[in-house]
Amino acid sequence: MSEEELTFWEKLARIDRRVFYWILFIGLMIPFIRPIMFPISISPSTRDLYEGIKEMVEPGDVVVMNIAFGVSAWPECMPAFVSCAKLFIREGAKIIIWGSYYDVDLTYEELLRRAKEDFAKLKYGEDYVYLGYYPNMEASVAQLGSSIRSIFSTDKYGTPLDELPMMKNVDKATDIKLVVSGDTGDCCDYYIRQWRIPYGVPVAEIGIAMLGSSYMPFYKSGVLFGMSVGVRGGAELEKLIGEPGEATIRMGAINISHILVIIAVVLANIGYFASRGKRR
């Protein structure tokens, strides 16, 4: 059938997908040039994450921030991760940062840059430490629970852990108040299996949107004390700590992309159903 013989609806159903990709790519840029702000309501899982940290963490408590996401997932995970770090610092917690992604150093440096004003008040070794990358995820997470020193004898910069004041009495999962894991995969599962269940350490998840449905059963059953899902979770946390930032702006782009996807789905379905009778 030549292009001239197609009806309007058939042409609608046959729009080249590259046209949609171009519109999407250009449409996503708009909020970064001119921010489009929408009201953001707080979901219960993000509120529980925020309130859980505020209720559980006392000044001087040691918490773990696990980086299990790479640079490619910064748009999704980073805003919530930065908000959590700020919250920990404001609650007076001492932070251990480590990660299971090979580009964890870049993420750590970006975390310090984005929360620069908060980290500037802290002293490295006394208030926070960075231990770097650990491979072989679940086995390492299990071992970290029984002895951090069996995996990391020094921090990332080669200083023995015993020489870092905040690490003097910290070596086991039971010395840790809670864990927040930023994930693109299943690393939070390992903390649930190897820290939450055997040692009772509260665990929370900062995941990409894709993990929302995977970890919701764990949150609903009380295994996770809180959960931030994707950019939306980041925007909610930014609102809760009173510092709207990157995720709040990015929500404009996400909303535009959703509107475009809905329009594409509707147009394709109209084209399909309108031309179905003709095919029969």
Partner: peptide
């Protein structure tokens, strides 16, 4: 949704 967020990045 995740892919859209990456693309927005």
């Amino acid at each position: 949704l995740f892919r859209m967020a990456m693309l927005s990045g």
